[in-house]
Design a binder for these strands. Sequence first.
DNA 1: TATAAAAGTTAGATTAATCTAACAAATATT
DNA 2: AATATTTGTTAGATTAATCTAACTTTTATA
Lengths: 222, 222
Amino acid sequence: MLSYTEENYLKALLKLSFQNEEKPEAGTNEMAAYLGVKPATATDMLKKLKEKDLVTYKKYGKILLTDTGKKNGIAILRKHRLWETFLYEKLDFSWDEVHEVAEQLEHIQSAKLVDKLEEFLDFPEFDPHGDPIPKANGEMPVIAKTLLAELKAGDTCSVAAVKDTSTLFLQYLEKLQITIGTKIKIIEVIDFDGSLYVGIAGGEPRSVSMKFAESLFVQKLL
Amino acid sequence: MLSYTEENYLKALLKLSFQNEEKPEAGTNEMAAYLGVKPATATDMLKKLKEKDLVTYKKYGKILLTDTGKKNGIAILRKHRLWETFLYEKLDFSWDEVHEVAEQLEHIQSAKLVDKLEEFLDFPEFDPHGDPIPKANGEMPVIAKTLLAELKAGDTCSVAAVKDTSTLFLQYLEKLQITIGTKIKIIEVIDFDGSLYVGIAGGEPRSVSMKFAESLFVQKLL
DNA sequence: TATAAAAGTTAGATTAATCTAACAAATATT
DNA sequence: AATATTTGTTAGATTAATCTAACTTTTATA
Ligand SMILES: [Mn+2]
Ligand SMILES: [Mn+2]
Ligand SMILES: [Mn+2]
Ligand SMILES: [Mn+2]
C-alpha cells in the first residue's frame, strides 16, 4: 500500500517525464520544486521509493520510474482525470475548479470505484482540459501536440488541450468562449511580438498574445 | 482545518452519542475501542480536541462534543451518507460495499462538492442503509426507531433501516430480498426463542431469529 | 470500608513527513 | 585547470499519530 505522499511523488515523476520530452528522468530539486517541498525532503522520499522498487535512483543521479512505479503513477493519473471529468460533466464544476478537488479524490483506494466511475462516465477518452485518460490496463493515447503558436496565417484548427492549466488562463479562455473543440482560424501572425490575429468560431476576430498561443494545444484542420 | 484523524474522532463521538440514547457522552476506552486505537492514543487526541474547543473533556471525565464539534461531526456524517448514496444509486455498489469507500470519501474537503453531489442525487433523505442524511444546515430528521422484534403477531411493517450494518447481515438481507421499504408481516411470534415467523412481500413465509429481528428497524403500518 | 477490577493517564519510544543549516559533489564559467 | 555556481545529501530537529508499560483514579464488590 502506498501512502498519499508516496503516490504524489510517483505522479509528479510521471508528469515530469511527460514534460521533459524524450528524457523521462528528473532531478531532486526539480521534484522538490514540483511538489512544493525542500530538496532534503525529496531526497529522503526518493530513497524510500527506491527501497520499494518504485524508482531507480542513486546518489547525485537522475531519477527514473521503474515499471511498477510507472504503473502506479498512471493509475493515479487515471483516477485524477476520471474524477475531473466527473466533476465537470456531472456536478457542473468549471474547468478551473476540478483540479484541486481531484488532487484529493485521486487518492481514494478502491479498484471497483475507478472502474465503475469510468463506466458511469461512458468511458471518456479525455479530461476537461483535453488530456488523455489512461485506460484500466494503463494504456494512454499519446496525441501529437501542436501549439497554436506553431500555426501560420490561413491555418484552421480545433482546440485539443490546454498546456497551461492555471486558473487565470482557464478563466480567460472561458471569457473568450474557447473550450475543447472550439475552432480557431489564424488570420494573421504579427512578427513583431509573435501575437496572432484570430477568428474564434462564433465570435468577433481578435488578437491573442504569443504567451496565449504557446499555452494552447490544437489539432490542425485540413 | 481538521486532520483526517481528528475528523474520525468527531464522527465517532457523534455516532456514540446516538448509540447511548439520552446520554450523548462517551468514555476514553469506549472511543478507543470504537476507533480501533489504544486508550492512551485516545487520551492524547481528546486533549488536542479540547484545545481546539471541539469537545469538553477533563481528566477521568466523560467526553461531550461542543457545538462546533457537533457541527463538524455532522458535516462528516453528511458527506459519508451522501457518498454512500452516490455509490449505491449511481455506481451500482451493493449496500454492503458502500461503507468502506465512503469512509475515505467523507474526508474530501470541498463545500461545493458536497452540495453539488446532494443536488445531483436529488436531495436524498436517507442513505442506502436507511439512515437519515443531514442537510447542509446540519438538520437531521430524527426518526422514531422501532425494532422488528418489538412487533406482535398480526402486525405489518415496512423496513426502515438496518441497525446492524455488518456485511454478513446485509448480504443475508439481500439473499432474503429484503431492502429498505420491503413490507413484512408478522405471522407468529415464537415465545420459546424470540424468533418470528414472517411473510416477506413477494416471498414464501419463513422464520427469522431474534437476533435478526433485533437488527432491523421498521415502521409499523396501520 | 477495604480491596479488587475497570477506566483512564503519563512517560517514553517509534514512524512518516517535513524542515533548516551545514556540507559535498557535479557542472559551468572564466 | 581553477573557481564559482548549481545541485544534491546529511545531520539533527519538529510535529502528528501511534504504541507499550507503568502508574493513578474511579467504580464495583466482597
Ligand atoms: Mn488536474
Ligand atoms: Mn486535467
Ligand atoms: Mn457507513
Ligand atoms: Mn450508511
